[in-house]
C-alpha cells in the first residue's frame, strides 16, 4: 500500500513537470504573433465601437415611443390624491358618502342618471331606512296595471331605482346640445384615473382657456378631458349646496365628496370586500402555518431517520 501511493505521487510530479514545460513552450511561440498589440487594441476598439454604435442606432430607430396624439388630445393626466378609501385598512368615509349623495342629488342628477343604484342600497350606507323611504316617496313610478289595464303612478319604494333625468339617451342628447351625459353608476371604474380623474375634471376648469387654445362652440375648456373640449360646463361653485353637517361647501370639498360617493356607487361592496380579504389573509395564513407544522410533524420520523450501510467485511485483516 505504501509503495503504491508513493509511486503514484512520483507519476504526478512527472506529469506536472511536463505541463510546465509545455506552457513555457507555448508562451515563447506566441510572442511573435502578438508582436503588435496596437493592432489587437484597434480590432477590439473597433468591435466595441460597432457594438455600441449599432445599439445606439437601434435605440434611435425603435427606442423612443412615437406619440400619435398631442398632449392636448391626450388630456392632462390627473394628479394622484391620497383617497382615504384606497388605503388597505380603511373603509369609505361614510360621512363623505352622505355629503356626496347630497351633491349628486342637488347638482349632478339634473343631467346625469345613476340608474343602477336603488334606494335600498343607500340604507345603512348613507341614510337610515326612514330617510331613504322618504326620499323614494318623493318620486313617482309606474305601478301594476289596474283592472282597466291602465298603468297608474305610485310613490316610490325602497326597491325602486334612482330616477333618471331623461327617458332615454336620445332625449338626453337632444336636451344637451348633442352631448350625452353618461350614467354615473360605474363612472369611476369606466374612466382612466378613476377617482383622481373625476375629481380633477370637476375642479379643473380654469378661469379662461390658455392663450391660443381653440375651444369649439358649445364646448368648455377642461385640461383633464381628452381633447380639452368638454360639453359639460363647470357646475360646482362654492356654497352651491348647504351641507347638513356644516362642512364648508367649497368647490373642492363638494367634488371630493361626490367623487367618493360615485366610487361607492361603482363598487359598493368595497368595505365588505376589504373585510373579507382581511379574514382570508388571517385565516389563510393560520391554516398555512398549521399545514406546514403538520407536514413537518408527519415527515419528522422520515426526515430524522438514519440510513446506515455496514458493508460486509472484505477479505482478511489489513
Amino acid at each position: 500500500m505504501l509503495a503504491r501511493s508513493s509511486c503514484l505521487r512520483a507519476a504526478g510530479a512527472v506529469r506536472n513537470g511536463a505541463v510546465t514545460v509545455s506552457k513555457r513552450a507555448a508562451s515563447t511561440s506566441t510572442t511573435e504573433a502578438a508582436a503588435s498589440p496596437f493592432r489587437l487594441n484597434l480590432a477590439g476598439g473597433a468591435a466595441t465601437a460597432v457594438a455600441i454604435g449599432s445599439a445606439a442606432w437601434y435605440y434611435h430607430l425603435y427606442g423612443p415611443t412615437a406619440h400619435a396624439m398631442t398632449p392636448a388630445e391626450e388630456g392632462l393626466h390627473p394628479t394622484k390624491y391620497p383617497w382615504v378609501h384606497s388605503e388597505y385598512l380603511k373603509t369609505f368615509d361614510h360621512q363623505a358618502l352622505r355629503r356626496g349623495f347630497q351633491v349628486y342629488r342637488e347638482v349632478c342628477s339634473s343631467c346625469h342618471s345613476l340608474s343602477r343604484i336603488p334606494y335600498r342600497s343607500l340604507v345603512g350606507v348613507t341614510h337610515t331606512v326612514d330617510e331613504a323611504k322618504a326620499m323614494a316617496e318623493e318620486n313617482e313610478y309606474d305601478s301594476e296595471p289596474n283592472d282597466q289595464g291602465d298603468i297608474e303612478k305610485r310613490p316610490g319604494k325602497l326597491s325602486d331605482y334612482l330616477p333618471s333625468p331623461y327617458t332615454n339617451d336620445e332625449a338626453a342628447r337632444a336636451a344637451n346640445n348633442g352631448a350625452l351625459p353618461p350614467d354615473l353608476s360605474l363612472i369611476v371604474k369606466a374612466r382612466h384615473g378613476g377617482c383622481d380623474y373625476i375629481f380633477s375634471l370637476l375642479t379643473g376648469y380654469p378661469e379662461e382657456p390658455p392663450a391660443g387654445a381653440v375651444v369649439q362652440e358649445g364646448l368648455n375648456f377642461n385640461p383633464y378631458f381628452p381633447g380639452t373640449g368638454i360639453a359639460m360646463a363647470r357646475v360646482l361653485y362654492n356654497e352651491l349646496v348647504e351641507y347638513e353637517d356644516g362642512t364648508p361647501a367649497t368647490t373642492s370639498q363638494m367634488a371630493k365628496d361626490v367623487t367618493e360617493f360615485l366610487n361607492w356607487a361603482a363598487e359598493p361592496e368595497m368595505d365588505q370586500r376589504k373585510k373579507m380579504g382581511m379574514k382570508v389573509i388571517i385565516i389563510g395564513s393560520a391554516l398555512f402555518a398549521l399545514s406546514v407544522w403538520v407536514k413537518r410533524y408527519k415527515w419528522s420520523p422520515i426526515k430524522t431517520r438514519k440510513i446506515a450501510y455496514n458493508p460486509p467485511q472484505m477479505g482478511g485483516k489489513h
Partner: peptide, 17 residues
C-alpha cells in the same frame, strides 16, 4: 398659430402635484 396648452399642462401638473 400656436397655443399654450402644453405649457398650461406642465404648469397645472406641477401646481397640482
Amino acid at each position: 398659430s400656436e397655443d399654450c396648452v402644453e405649457e398650461f399642462f406642465h404648469l397645472a401638473h406641477c401646481a397640482n402635484e
